[in-house]
Design a protein around this nucleic acid. Sequence first.
RNA 1: GGCGCGGUACCCAAGUGGUAAGGGAGAGGUCUGCAAAACCUUUAUGCGUCGGUUCGAUUCCGACCCGCGCCU
Length: 313
Amino acid sequence: MPRDPLLVVILGPTGSGKTALSLELAARFHGEIVNCDSVAMYREFRIGTAKPTAEEQARAPHHLLDVIEPTNFTTAGEYARMARQILLQIQQRAALPIVVGGTGLYLRALIDGLFPGPERSEELRERLRERAHEKGAQYLHRLLQRMDSRSASRIHANDVPKMIRAIEVCLAAKQPMSEQWKAGREPLTGFEIQRIGLDPNRAELYRRIHERVLGMFDAGLVEETQQLLNHYGDAARPLSSIGYKQVVQLLRGEIDREAAVDAVQQAHRNYAKRQMTWFRREPEVTWIQGFGNQIGVITQAVAAVQNRLQPAP
RNA sequence: GGCGCGGUACCCAAGUGGUAAGGGAGAGGUCUGCAAAACCUUUAUGCGUCGGUUCGAUUCCGACCCGCGCCU
């Protein structure tokens, strides 16, 4: 019986060597790389996102890098649509798609799908955010409680973003979000999925992050941020993401360089931990202990892919 | 050597004669369209040491140790 083509997913915390591993796998299996890091999708954000360099990108086709204007924004749903489109194209070329990234929600949106609900509404969000600011988060929670008590009980009363999304969904569809969820998700079909998870030793990962951030500053993170700030100001949303946010504070004179470096390192460490919490729940992951640029790790990853391509009889 | 100030968790730090705020870090967790976001949980029988007063001391008293500042 005909089998679906294989889709390889590489996941892991920031600094675990996903890029290095993806290039190795792409070279061995005629792969094409599909980015799954939210901020790497933005143009001109280069150093702070640890995007693959031009040389690295020349070693295999890369997708969904630099596809959003700095002043625009994207969402998990939009990401999933774009990525699925690209997956089909790669399939037609008979190449191996390799999804690489650390944004857990985007990965889930791609593979498991989201419920077919309404997209975000900026005006409504702005209003709700103001209310929350004036009257406190509890106000939103009471509001949601009236519209959709099931969702309200699942969302913590301090979690403003999630409450806003739930209220938005209820209003746009004139139906509780919990009802709309019953329609189920829209999962990706037509692929067999091999997830490879990088699970490096925590202390070692933190050491690598320390060095990597120093490297970013050496490579001109401050200058890059300065340019983005000059060109776009607050309109470039990723300026508030890890690395850029702290450098903006440095450029505004709120902290000195040493404090900025420390803060960026700290933010990356916190992020890596959160990513691991998310990924631990991801199903069917072949976990490999170590970093993606280590020979032993690469060997194991290659074997895992090989196994799926030509399973033992 | 003298005087003054200070010593509370891994770090910063509040505090009271009645049984140790808060923040950060660390660890664990949540996540259905801003997710590199947001949120939740958790961490000192212990307050430099030894005595004393007291029903009760981290708090008051004494001595000592350590740090910082000033004076000689």
